[in-house]
């Protein structure tokens, strides 16, 4: 090719690629409101995003896996706690020094309205359809471990409790944090599951005990709840 026209080698591929990108983005941007449930994006939810940016959360944590790798991904963190664990999650953010002893989080002076908005925002992000990422919360690959989450389903625990964003709201969400706060050992957790009223006479939980579980299943379930995986 003549030297005079060499620049076409540069300009043409660039224009083609740019046109493809613009076309695809145009379509994509139309799809985004559906995949993110943008209709639920109220003023208060957006206030949560403002607050998260104010404290620069995203430079330690990631959203969609982007940001700082110093702390867990927050996109679907709300699923771990659920509505029942909302107060606990708030306490983790407000008083990190109570919850973390190894790797620590900065203690911020977050206002009441900010923390509520953050909760609503995290609840909203946890339901975005992002092609099933991260794997931990995935339908297909999530939380393999010892089959504990299958047990929760099989034994109908999820009728009352929430786990990993699934289940009912009558009982508390079964996060490891909640479990460890409520029971001083695996043994007391085990006793409680067999006969809830022995640990707390006001408990409304049904005694599942011997009838429902084999010893092995009970061991697996206790280990699973205690370790959160």
């Amino acid at each position: 090719m003549k030297e005079k026209y060499l620049w076409l080698w540069f300009i043409l591929p660039t224009l083609i690629s740019a046109a493809v990108l613009v076309g695809l983005l145009k379509h994509s941007i139309k799809e985004i409101p559906i995949r993110t449930n943008a209709d639920l994006l109220t003023e208060k939810v957006v206030a949560g995003k403002v607050a998260l940016q104010k404290y620069n959360c995203n430079d330690c944590h990631t959203f969609f896996g982007i940001g700082g790798y110093y702390a867990p991904d927050l996109t679907k963190i709300y699923r771990k706690y659920g509505d029942g664990g909302r107060e606990l999650l708030k306490d983790v953010i407000l008083n990190p020094e109570k919850h973390f002893t190894g790797r620590r989080m900065k203690k911020f002076n977050i206002t009441d309205s900010e923390i509520e908005a953050m909760m609503d925002y995290l609840r909203w992000t946890s339901n975005i359809n992002n092609n099933d990422w991260p794997p931990v919360y995935s339908e297909k690959y999530g939380r393999k471990g010892n089959g504990g989450s299958n047990l929760l389903k099989a034994k109908k625990c999820l009728l009352c409790h929430r786990y990993n964003g699934e289940g009912g709201g009558a009982g508390p969400a079964l996060s490891a944090d909640f479990i460890r706060k409520s029971f001083d050992s695996k043994d007391s957790l085990r006793k409680f599951i067999i006969n809830p009223q022995s640990g707390n006479k006001d408990s409304l939980m049904l005694p599942y005990g011997g009838a429902e579980f084999t010893e092995k299943e009970l061991d697996d379930l206790v280990k699973f709840l205690w370790e959160g995986r």
């Binding site: 300009i11 690629s17 493809v20 695809l24 985004i32 993110t36 969609f64 359809n129 992002n130 092609n131």
Partner: peptide, 29 residues
Amino acid sequence: YIEAGLVLFTGIVGIGHHFYWTGHPDYWL
């Protein structure tokens, strides 16, 4: 010219590898 053209040809739409898990449609994969 050839390198710069190829860089942009592959790189501009290559932005798609950042849209896998961010709430974009799955054709970006």
